[in-house]
Design a protein around this nucleic acid. Sequence first.
DNA 1: GCCGAAATTGTGAACGCAAACATGCGTGCG
DNA 2: CGCACGCATGTTTGCGTTCACAATTTCGGC
Lengths: 340, 340
Amino acid sequence: MSVNVKRGRPPGMMDVARLAGVSHQTVSRVLNEHKNVSEQTRLKVRAAIAELGYRPDRAARALVTGTSKVIGVVAQNSSLYGPASMLTAFEEAAQATGFAVNVGSVRSLDERSITEAVERHLDQRVAGLVVIAPVASAGPALEHLPADVPLVTIDGDPERSSTLVTVDQVAGARAATQRLLDAGHRTVWHISGPSDWFDAAGRVRGWEDTLTEAGVEIPPLLTGDWSAASGYRNGQLLARLPDVTAVFTANDHIALGLLRALNEHGRRVPGDVSIIGFDDVPEAAYFTPPLTTVRPDFAAVAMATLDLLMAQVESGPAGVGARRTIAPELIERDSVAGPA
Amino acid sequence: MSVNVKRGRPPGMMDVARLAGVSHQTVSRVLNEHKNVSEQTRLKVRAAIAELGYRPDRAARALVTGTSKVIGVVAQNSSLYGPASMLTAFEEAAQATGFAVNVGSVRSLDERSITEAVERHLDQRVAGLVVIAPVASAGPALEHLPADVPLVTIDGDPERSSTLVTVDQVAGARAATQRLLDAGHRTVWHISGPSDWFDAAGRVRGWEDTLTEAGVEIPPLLTGDWSAASGYRNGQLLARLPDVTAVFTANDHIALGLLRALNEHGRRVPGDVSIIGFDDVPEAAYFTPPLTTVRPDFAAVAMATLDLLMAQVESGPAGVGARRTIAPELIERDSVAGPA
DNA sequence: GCCGAAATTGTGAACGCAAACATGCGTGCG
DNA sequence: CGCACGCATGTTTGCGTTCACAATTTCGGC
């Protein structure tokens, strides 16, 4: 397996063919695992490939086939734990199947930005597209793209997207809310994510539904923006209301901010107030106290996405949109107790 | 700006040329901003491009030029805040200059994994390579790659990498340690990152140097792995030593774990123990208490990287390795006070 | 031992673009 | 007035691969 040391362009199929004493087409066949190639020539070609250190040129292949082994991902350029986790999980999964991942981050998820990012990917002749589009405004951008490009949306609009993978936000929120109710709390407050996020909306719904079914009073909804800062701001308010004994926050970072606000006001967790978060960020176990939270399985989301995408890549964009929902899991730690 | 609704392949340069009444080469010249094109035909061509919704095929261009407008990034597939932040910051910067970013995540930063990732990128004919290689074992993988591919290493080995961008770990660690000393503490303990990380090593050195210069006793070094869990483990130990009054942790997550351990043992921060972290994760301001920490400017790292890379892309791999060091900034919050 | 089908290999084209080379035209200068 | 040079544009070639089709060989059955 000697390295090619010649100058100039790297070796091409022709060079391999010459060395192996066959035609370039035969080399192509070996490369693409065609059936009708004799074992003998296959070996000769393989040997020549190894000797020259030949590597097929992806660009040339993309040119003629009209598609590449690259998947374009459109994601928001943020350090939000959820989206970021999905992204890296997806990358890893895609690489395992021989696909490269092209990330087109986008500053905000408005229609224009997404459209641009999608078009950049289309220029690269990506084999498929994954859009992490958790907000409503992302919807329209995906309506008008070529129908023949495989597309899977993560956390997109359940009403529009044809092929969708989502975490079951409602179920997660229900589990959290119910857990708090079961602990004996009269009701449960909620600090939500931004209202235009589907994730946030789903968590709100799960929370409301559970409360309604329990026949319990529904406290006013507080709105955050996923940040610890917003949890802190809302916490300043909550800390002053003595009858607040249980809070479900839309994510762990909000919970962290809330924790600090509560702490500053001398309210103990879980002694005075119980809290459940969402996401299970790696640090959640080391909050003070360790946070009970809902863990979405991002790896599973990534798998499902890849799965759905590959199905389309292989057989043309699937007809009716396939859906895949990943059920999250409640992780019990120390931030929940009964009311005083 | 009507959308192309024709069947079959998207329009090519020929289609544009025909519509504009020129040759395809003229279209090419307009696209590449060649000088010798009259304003008049330039306009005609532009109009034709817009009317057809023509978009150049990157694959074809890559084939003929031998290079693409894609930058390959090799990074570890982890949710560590630092590397992840650099990655997204870099993506954004690259896109602004018209380059797409291909991420080749890698599960671990050993030589084999990195070599593979690099070769995948080379197959795609990337215009340049960025490797986020914070550990020693990543070095060898970069020795044997074609000399003509532009390469910038982030947080790589100062001894080997020719073109390198790093955060000035030593300076950051010095600032933190000095701040603690200035507050009146007799000495400063340190929980470091994994010893094979350059970042960790630099922080240890800055800490040691400062202590040495101050003529102060150097406590035994405690080692973590960047995780809150490791901060907690080491914290269990530290919390039992009454003479520990100041700790500099290698990152904010370790600080969080330490915070919890201290809290469990009834040691108040900053009353009994002062702490300074590193990274300034968005949540650091909402720890209890808000964490004083060192903030590396990841955006600046990304800019510098892109800068260095572009210089190489334009003029061939630069001769002697250019270096760029980004100075971090101490962010003062509430986790530091004088000794009791 | 001959025919046809299947298996194996080869030939030519095409993919969409940029580079090299070629052309035609005008303009300045001697 | 003619020549050379610069500008604007056109023509040709080839990048490395796959595809459609052709050519050759192999093999079984009768």
